[in-house]
């Protein structure tokens, strides 16, 4: 360490004091952190690799021998899922109610988030807090009452029932996320638009929504995701016609003679939708999980 020897020169040549240690320090820690990240990512990827590995094997190979990669590469498991209606219908059901949920969520959440971000009104803080409590409410508490509620209004085993049930936690989430984004838009824009003669709906759709386009995308992504990953409510509210892929999978597990290859392939296919869009929201993931704060 020559740092102490350099110290007297600090006043005259500030560049050396700040930059020399940087170069020296960077080399080692970067290597160390790369190792840490590599180990962590390996830990994350191993189980996923194993699932993918199994989905590409025949059942004989899965049960017969222990192989680290598929010796007889087969796409048979995927073919089974994509051709058997009892399997692929599960995906269609899931996608249907998830899409409905995203549309409903954004439609009601956008104006509400605008109200919260721009105005004070009676009970606004309480309402905002109450919304949050619904995001945090344990689905297990709601499973049975939901079943009875949707049965009594004849919506049991329909896609809209699941979509509405998922609004319980997705609407609050979307309101919080959107409010976070909307606060970043200066209020002067609203005022200028009104002076220019825009009506509220026209201003909102034509000017405001493009300004928070990324926020809408993030809110849509998170509504999609939380509706897609949830199982307890969607399973409780459906039996045949709207049964989600997640429930189709659960019922296969534990049955005598589980078809491991198909199960793994079904699992891989449920990861695909999230994996496809993750690139676009990578910088907002933390913000979305933290309900628009951070």
């Amino acid at each position: 360490m020559t740092d102490t020897a350099q110290a007297p020169g600090a006043a005259t040549i500030p560049g050396r004091v700040t930059e020399a240690p940087v170069a020296r320090r960077r080399r080692l820690p970067v290597k160390g952190s790369a190792v840490v990240m590599a180990l962590y990512l390996l830990f994350l990827m191993l189980p996923l690799y194993w699932l993918l590995n199994m989905s590409l094997k025949t059942n004989a190979e899965i049960l017969g021998s222990f192989t680290l990669w598929p010796r007889n590469l087969t796409l048979e498991n995927y073919a089974t899922i994509l051709t058997d209606p009892s399997w692929y219908q599960g995906y269609i059901n899931s996608l249907l109610y998830v899409t409905m949920n995203v549309v409903i969520t954004l439609t009601v959440a956008l104006p509400a988030a605008y109200a919260f971000s721009r105005y004070h009104f009676m009970g606004d803080k309480h309402l905002f807090f109450w919304l949050l409590t619904n995001r945090m409410a344990p689905p297990a508490v709601f499973a049975l009452p939901f079943f009875q509620l949707y049965s009594s209004v004849n919506l049991f085993d329909t896609h809209i029932a699941v979509a509405l049930a998922h609004c319980l936690f997705n609407v609050p989430l979307a309101v919080w996320i959107l409010e976070g984004f909307m606060r970043g838009v200066p209020k002067e824009i609203d005022e200028t638009a009104y002076i220019d003669g825009y009506s509220f709906p026209k201003f909102f759709v034509k000017i405001f929504m493009p300004l928070i386009a990324s926020g809408i995308g993030v809110a849509a992504f998170f509504a999609f995701m939380f509706s897609w990953v949830e199982l307890l409510l969607s399973r409780t509210l459906t039996s045949v016609d709207a049964k989600p892929i997640a429930a189709t999978m659960t019922r296969t597990v534990g049955a005598s003679g589980v078809d491991w290859g198909v199960l793994a392939a079904a699992g891989v296919l449920t990861i695909v939708p999230g994996a496809l869009v993750i690139w676009f929201v990578r910088n907002y993931i933390a913000k979305g999980f933290a309900l628009g704060r951070v």
Binding site: M45, P47, M225, G267, I271, R282, F289
Partner: peptide
């Protein structure tokens, strides 16, 4: 960021199955 987010987007029962 992308690789780390992957486990967060997997349906919870698939996490169990994995």
């Amino acid at each position: 960021l992308v690789l780390m987010s992957l486990p967060l987007l997997i349906p919870w029962n698939v996490v169990g199955t994995i």
